[in-house]
Amino acid sequence: MNEKKKNKKKNRVIMRSVILFLMIAAIGYTLYNNATAEDVSVLKVGDEAPDFKLVDLEGESHQLSDYKGQGVFLNFWGTWCKPCAKEMPAMDRQFDVFKDQGVQVLAVNIAQSEFEVQSFADQYDLSFPVVIDKTKSVMTAYNIIPLPTTVLVNPEGEIERIITGEMTEQDIEGFMEEIKPE
């Protein structure tokens, strides 16, 4: 009789603990999802950079994964964005220095016309490939909001750093140093 009672009590405590634990776990999970809901699509440092394929002004395709083993300096920009225009010449100069050390610059224009992008590239005499994201799908994949945004991809294909806003030439030099292969 006493044994039975003890067992019953034990079962009761186990049952209650399990139910409470499940409920609290559900609330905890909801809180976690709620807290991370907003940045679930946002890329974080250390994430693998989403692969993409875009065509440059010469008609050549550039696929991010083709540059594995090199650092990729990914710059999202628009012709109407003044800070973008300001940092372009500095990027071009630093590209000149770093291109032989395994750093590639890809300037991704957001859905503008070829005429505008070409005129811009001609005006600043850009030597790195300029690609146009016509359907904004790369912008969506990288969740780019303000322009300019620069995503540094290291030789392993992971995101090393995300910079929003204008960069000085010194910044650019430092960033290229960061993603330079050993």
């Binding site: 409470l20 409920m23 609290i24 559900a26 609330i27 909801t30 809180l31 709620n34 807290a35």
Partner: peptide
């Protein structure tokens, strides 16, 4: 989306 409101609703469920 406030954590305490979610906790309140969770407590209601419990």
């Amino acid at each position: 989306s406030s954590f305490w409101f979610i906790i309140l609703v969770g407590m209601l469920a419990i």
